[in-house]
């Protein structure tokens, strides 16, 4: 028996919004410690790694480890049927063919129940090596989203350059160039602060298309963490409230 309950479906709705444009399907690994998802986009350019800890749920029970293949589009449709204040309960039997989503509206005697067929999926798990990154930048997630949106108008790629002076985002195309530079702020730990930990300067280019998928996670938290090293994938990390995190890995572009 698997059962996981959140008194506010808002967080799960935001999680689905953060992955639905990037992933068509994903395997949800459920264990006693929580729910883990690792999945690549169809083009195998990026990887999503998500963790929802069992102690972050209002009720969590997982008697046997389950590996459930789910259609992200269908799951997203189902979560759209919940209002943000609804309590959401996910439930599955051992060796399930389906997963059940139940929504209870507080103060009302209404329960909505949706059952989704699970998908048989090939188990493809990638090993992500432990990496010490040359630059780790924490900045307001809304600021990052705005930069990605703004610069995407000017080119297909965004070049991120990080030095002691700050982090610079650039795009260039036929119509012109765009540059946004952020310096480290005096105070750290605030929601609007910019902090840069740098061992070595980096300069890498990434596809705007994918960065625009990642910023769909912006409503999840106020700060985003970008980890960069030359010639390795970017890690773009958002906390999922107090319950877990979502990390997007994006392979860099290289000169032709």
């Amino acid at each position: 028996m698997f059962e996981a309950r959140l008194t506010q479906s808002a967080i799960l709705k935001k999680v689905l919004d953060a992955i639905k444009d990037l992933l068509t399907e994903a395997t949800f690994e459920c264990t006693d410690s929580g729910i883990q998802v690792q999945a690549m986009d169809n083009a195998h350019v990026s990887l999503v790694s998500m963790n929802l800890r069992s102690d972050g749920f209002d009720k969590y029970r997982c008697d046997r480890n389950l590996s459930m293949g789910m259609s992200i589009a269908v799951m997203s449709k189902i979560l759209k049927c919940a209002t943000t204040n609804d309590t959401v309960t996910m439930r599955a039997v051992d060796n399930p063919d389906t997963i059940e989503f139940m929504f209870d509206t507080p103060g009302k005697d209404v329960q909505a129940q949706y059952e989704m067929k699970l998908i048989n999926m090939d188990q493809e798990h990638l090993g992500i090596p432990e990496t010490v990154y040359s630059c780790v930048v924490k900045m307001p997630s809304q600021e990052f989203a705005r930069i990605v949106r703004d610069l995407s108008q000017f080119g297909e790629n965004i070049t991120i350059a990080c030095t002691k002076e700050g982090i610079k985002f650039s795009a260039a195309g036929d119509t012109g160039t765009a540059n946004v530079k952020l310096a480290q702020t005096a105070d750290s730990g605030e929601s609007d602060s910019v902090t840069i930990e740098m061992q070595e300067s980096v300069k890498l280019s990434f596809s705007c298309r994918y960065l625009n998928f990642f910023i769909k996670a912006t409503p999840l938290c106020e700060q985003v963490q970008l980890s960069l090293s030359n010639d390795v994938p970017l890690v773009c990390e958002f906390n999922i409230g107090e319950i877990g995190h979502i990390k997007y890995y994006l392979a860099p572009k290289i000169e032709d």
Binding site: M40, H44, V45, S46, L47, E124, H125, L126, G127, I128, P129, N157, S205, S207, V232, P233, Y249, L250, A251, P252, K253, I254, E255, D256
Partner: peptide, 13 residues
């Protein structure tokens, strides 16, 4: 510029 694949960095296990 050419796009690298994520699987060229992370191997299947």
């Amino acid at each position: 510029m050419a796009q690298r694949s994520i699987t060229s960095f992370f191997k299947k296990i």
